[in-house]
Design a protein around this nucleic acid. Structure first.
Lengths: 230, 230
DNA sequence: GTCTATACAACGATAGAC
DNA sequence: GTCTATCGTTGTATAGAC
C-alpha cells in the first residue's frame, strides 16, 4: 500500500530543476541562440529566466525593461540578445517551456488507475504541489497570458482547458461508478481549478496565516469529498 | 416573503452607473482636475475611464500608453492631463473609486438579519452580481494591483480581506447555530471568494459554454450547502 | 477647455571593439 | 561570448496657440 502523497515526498520525487528546463530550452532553440557552449548557455539562461520571473512578477512583464533585466541578471544588453531575438521571444519561450514541463509532470504523476477518489486526490495534489515548485512560473503564466497575440493566446487557453479536463474525466468516471454525486462535472472541475489557482495567486495571504500547502490540500480535498457525497 | 435575488432583479435595484461614479470622482478630486464645468468634466471622465479599462484589460495598464488612451478616448494628450496629473494618479483614482462603490453596495445590499443561509446566499449573489455589473473594474483591480507601491498595495489587500471577512462572519454565525459544519470558517470563506472571482477572471470560458450567471450562482451555493452540511 | 508642437527621458535593438 | 556606444522610436509630460 503506497504512502499518501505529501509535498515533501513530491519534491523528492519530481525535482523539476531550472537547469533541466534550461537544457531543454537550449537544445530546442539552438537556431535563435548564438551561444555554442552548452555549459555557458545553460548557466546564463538560468540567470536570465530567474531574473525575468522575479522582475516580471513584481511589476509586470511589460513594465520590466531589458535594462532592468540586464542589471538584475548581471549581463549586458548586448549579451542578452545573444540568448533571445527580442523581448517577445523571451515571453514565448518562458510560456512554452513552462507548459511543456507542466504537461509532462501531470502526465507522469497523476494516477490513471485505482479507486476513483484516489485518482482525484492524486490529480489535486500533483497540480497543487507542482504549482508550488514552479510558483513563479505559474503566477507569471496566469498574469501575462493576455499580452499574447491570437495564436499564442489560444494555446494558453488550451492549457487551462487541459488541466480542467483532467479533473472532469475523473469526476465523470466517479459519477458513473456512483462514487460522486455531481450537479455538473464540468462546473465542479472548473471550481476545483479555481481553488487550486488561489493558492499560488494569493500566496501572501496563506503565508501570512501560516497555512501550509498540505493543510490547504487536505482542506480542498475534504471540501470536494463532502460536496460530492452521493 | 421576498422573492429570491436574481441577476435581472439585482440590476434593476442597484444600477451603478458610470455617470454616478464619475460625478463622485469629479467632486472628490476638484483640486487636481482643471475643468470647472461639471457636465463637461463628467462626460469626459466617463470616456477616459471606459477607454482606460478597455485598453488596460486587453493588454495591461503598463502597456497602455497615454497616446493609446488619447486615440481611444478621442481626447488629445493635453486634454487628458487636465483630468489627472499623471498616469499613476489615473490608476489610483480608478482603484479608489471602484473600492468605494464595491464597499457601499455590499454594505447596503448584503442581508444583516434573517436565517443564516439566506444571509450567506445574499452575500454570494450580491458579490457575484456586482462583479458582473462592474466586470471591467473587477478584472482591472485584480490584475493591476501589484503595480502599486507599499501604501496603495496595502489598501488593495485590505479590500480582499474585507469581503472575505464578510463571508467568514456569516459562516461562523452559522457554525454557532449548528447550521453549518466547518473544518475552518476562514478557509471556507477563502475558497468561496476564489470561486466567485473565477467568474469574472475567466469570463471567456463561461461565455463559451453558455453558462449564465444565475446558473453559476446556483451551482456555487449548492456546492457550499453540500460541503457545509452538518 | 482643447488643441498642436515639442521637450527630454527611457525604450528595444544593433554594430563593432575586445 | 561579452562588452560599450549609439541608433531610431516611443514614452510621459508640458508650453503656448486658439
Amino acid at each position: 500500500m503506497p504512502k499518501p502523497l505529501t509535498y515533501a515526498r513530491f519534491r523528492k520525487r519530481v525535482m523539476v530543476s531550472m537547469e533541466d528546463i534550461c537544457r531543454d530550452i537550449f537544445r530546442e532553440n539552438r537556431k535563435s541562440i548564438r551561444i555554442k557552449k552548452e555549459a555557458v548557455a545553460i548557466r546564463n539562461l538560468v540567470t536570465i529566466f530567474k531574473a525575468t520571473l522575479k522582475l516580471s512578477n513584481a511589476k509586470g512583464f511589460q513594465a520590466m525593461s531589458l535594462r532592468d533585466l540586464s542589471r538584475e541578471s548581471g549581463l549586458s544588453m548586448g549579451a542578452l540578445y545573444a540568448y533571445f531575438s527580442g523581448k517577445e521571444e523571451l515571453l514565448e519561450v518562458i510560456h512554452e517551456q513552462g507548459r511543456a514541463v507542466t504537461f509532462s509532470v501531470l502526465e507522469a504523476y497523476v494516477a490513471k488507475t485505482g479507486p476513483v477518489f484516489d485518482r482525484l486526490e492524486s490529480a489535486v495534489r500533483t497540480h497543487l504541489y507542482l504549482s508550488e515548485v514552479m510558483r513563479d512560473w505559474f503566477f507569471f503564466a496566469y498574469m501575462e497570458t493576455r499580452y499574447f497575440r491570437k495564436t499564442e493566446h489560444k494555446r494558453a487557453m488550451e492549457g487551462e482547458l487541459y488541466t480542467e479536463k483532467l479533473f472532469c474525466d475523473i469526476l465523470e468516471q466517479g459519477q458513473k461508478e456512483g462514487v460522486f454525486y455531481l450537479e455538473s462535472a464540468l462546473l465542479t472541475a472548473s471550481v476545483i481549478k479555481a481553488m487550486l489557482q488561489d493558492w499560488y495567486l494569493k500566496r501572501w495571504k496563506y503565508r501570512q496565516r501560516n497555512i501550509s500547502i498540505d493543510t490547504y490540500a487536505d482542506f480542498v480535498l475534504n471540501m470536494i469529498r463532502r460536496a460530492t457525497w452521493p
